[in-house]
Simulated scan of single mutants.
Amino acid sequence: FIGFEATAIFRDEARDPDRTIPRATYGAVIGIGVFYTLSTWGLVMAWGPNGILAAAAENPATLMLRTVAIYLGTVGEVVVNVLLLTSMFACVLSFHNVLTRYQHAMSTAGVLPDSVSGVHARHLSPHVSSLVQTATAGVLLAAFALLGLDPLLQVFTWLSGVATVAIVVLMAVTSIAVIVYFTRNRQDRRPWNTVIAPALGFAGLAIAAVVIVAYFPVMVGDVDAE
Results as ranks from 00 to 15, higher is better:
E77C: 04
T183D: 14
M219V: 12
V162D: 04
L43G: 03
V78I: 13
G221F: 09
T134A: 14
T67K: 05
A8V: 15
V116C: 13
G161R: 01
T174S: 10
S130F: 10
A209R: 02
D16A: 14
L205P: 03
T40I: 02
H120M: 12
F10V: 14
G148C: 05
L38W: 01
A121N: 11
S129I: 13
L200K: 05
V75M: 10
P151Q: 05
A46M: 09
Y215E: 06
A105N: 13
A166I: 15
T7L: 06
W41N: 11
E77F: 00
S107A: 12
M64I: 00
T100G: 09
P126A: 10
A137Y: 07
A166M: 05
A28H: 10
Y215D: 06
I196V: 14
P17R: 00
I179P: 11
L112Q: 03
T134G: 11
T174F: 14
S117W: 00
A46L: 11
L38I: 09
F156C: 02
N97D: 11
V68F: 00
F202W: 04
L65A: 05
D16V: 15
H120K: 07
P17E: 00
V68R: 00
I30A: 10
G110P: 06
A142R: 04
T157H: 12
V178M: 08
D222G: 06
Y71W: 09
P60C: 06
